[in-house]
Computed example of a mutant assay.
Amino acid sequence: MPTPIIATIKPFYQELKPGQKILWCSCGRSKRQPFCDGRSHIGTGLEPVLYQAKQDEEVLLCGCKHSGTAPFCDGTHSNLPGGYVDETEAVAAATLPAVVAPDTQGFARLDGRCYVVSPGFSVADRATDYRLRPLVTPALGAAHQSQFYLELDRGASPVFTADGDVVIWLSHGEGNAIIGGRNFPFSGGCGVHVVAGETFRLEGQNIAAYVSVCPAVETLETVDAIIDGFDESMADRLGLIDKAARSAMGPRYFQILLDDHHGLDNSALFIGHIPMSKAEMHRHLYEEALIILSGEGMIWNENARAKVCAGDVIFFPRKHIHSLQALSPEGMDVVGFIHPGTNPGINYY
């Protein structure tokens, strides 16, 4: 197959209207990037790709010309020569925005709707075996997802249900996830998918869990008891860590734990590792709740910084420019839930 040349490493952001047609340059030689100029591909053996929008769409058109999902970016650029660049210490030190301290509720707000939250509980809260705290909700600035932090010392949580997908990251603990009458044993460090409308609860001891819901809700709805009604069409509910399933993203890596292959609707749960470094400023088309599993670091945007450590959650609105810096020599491990979108390896300037 003919080999295209790299026009740009990062993708091109475009807004498309219903019925709008574009002719994407596949050869990398066009003078009208990311579109074909009608002549530069002649003789290359590479033809432009026609795409017609079906609705109002925000898309990232591949600039490296090596994507496997042409004309759209699939993150391949991160693994091409020069495709993943960490910000240099000199650039990072040139402008040091102020460090935002957390408020009395544990929220450090960078600007707009982006924030870091430390989901601790007070001594009074810990008088009971079960605790629940909202971390990401529409009232806190989210548009597409919610997240709640759940702690269970022993016994059983209330029975919950939601009109949308529920994705649980079981950070630690041992027990069972009861979903629609079906029992799923766990021992920390895995994801769980609950289909919209199913009832669920957690049972066990020393459980810490991050419960995500999309579309976004203000609270987790409770019911009196588990209702039999497990969706047999999606029987694979656990997202287990598998080192062989990692995807490289330059010096970083991630593994998808749960996505549309598990029945989710345009969302994904992933686990990843960030070596000691600072990423270049970038944006995503998805909304993200990022859980810090280990290590310490700093989240940056153009006007502020905030410290992050294990247990914290960073909330990123769509299109919010940011950079995550890992400061620990051993790096930082993270778990993220993204929606709308399924590929954490896609970003743009």
Rank of each mutant, 00 (worst) to 15 (best):
L150S: 10
G188H: 09
Q147F: 04
G204E: 11
L135G: 06
R154I: 12
V116K: 07
F186K: 05
A108F: 02
D125L: 02
D242G: 06
Q147C: 15
A139F: 04
N206C: 00
P185E: 13
D163A: 15
A244H: 09
S187I: 10
V194L: 03
R131G: 10
D228R: 12
R113I: 01
N206L: 01
S122L: 02
D231H: 12
A209N: 03
Q145I: 14
V213C: 05
G112T: 02
R113F: 14
S146Y: 06
G141C: 07
R109Q: 05
L140T: 01
S187A: 13
A216M: 02
R246P: 00
G175M: 10
G106K: 01
E203N: 04
G112W: 08
G175I: 13
C190A: 10
A127S: 13
D224P: 00
R126S: 14
G191T: 07
Y130V: 08
V223D: 05
T161N: 05
G155N: 09
V116M: 00
Y149C: 14
S212D: 10
S122Y: 00
L238V: 12
D111E: 14
A143Y: 07
L238S: 03
G180D: 04
P215F: 02
C190S: 11
A143G: 14
I227K: 15
D103A: 04
Q147G: 14
G229P: 03
A124H: 01
G204W: 03
V213E: 03
I226L: 10
A139V: 07
I207C: 01
V136I: 13
A235L: 09
G112N: 05
V167R: 06
V166F: 10
I179L: 12
P185C: 06
F107I: 12
R237S: 07
S233N: 15
R237F: 07
Y149K: 05
G189M: 08
L170V: 15
R126M: 10
G175R: 07
G180T: 05
F184W: 03
G197R: 06
T222F: 06
A177N: 10
F160R: 07
T219Q: 14
